[in-house]
Amino acid sequence: MTRKLDDKSTTLNNMTQKQIAIVNTNKNTPSALKSLLSDLGYGVECYTQVSTLIEITKTHPTDVIIIESDIANDAGLNLVKTFNQLVTPIPTILLTDNGDLLSAVEAMKFGALNYIEKPIADSALAKIVHQACS
């Protein structure tokens, strides 16, 4: 499997840079989130396949996983569970634009770090990601 590296790949060598994985199964969604987080100095990778994400995290240190929008359903919840049950759990944040109370509660009970409804101010999101990485 080849890992697509963008122009920020050089900074991947910097061990102090926090690595964030964004998963969004909706291929047509341009991720404004990616540019925001890159601008904030994080290493950001985007995935449209849950299976690819799971494979990659086995070998690449990932500090936070952001599960975006349309999969704040069963698949998203399962992902939260998967990463929370690892020997070294990876924090997960769900970011959704059609959230409901039930899945929010379920996600949190499964060990998600946060469940956020869009729209959210960049500054608020930056703060949450920063806390998740520390």
Partner: peptide, 23 residues
């Protein structure tokens, strides 16, 4: 137990250790 589905409140409650949040 809540009458209104307020997601931020539910998230806060579970983050603070609540074992469930029922609507």
């Amino acid at each position: 137990i809540t009458g209104h589905g307020d997601i931020p409140m539910a998230v806060k409650a579970v983050q603070s250790g609540a074992i469930d949040f029922i609507q």
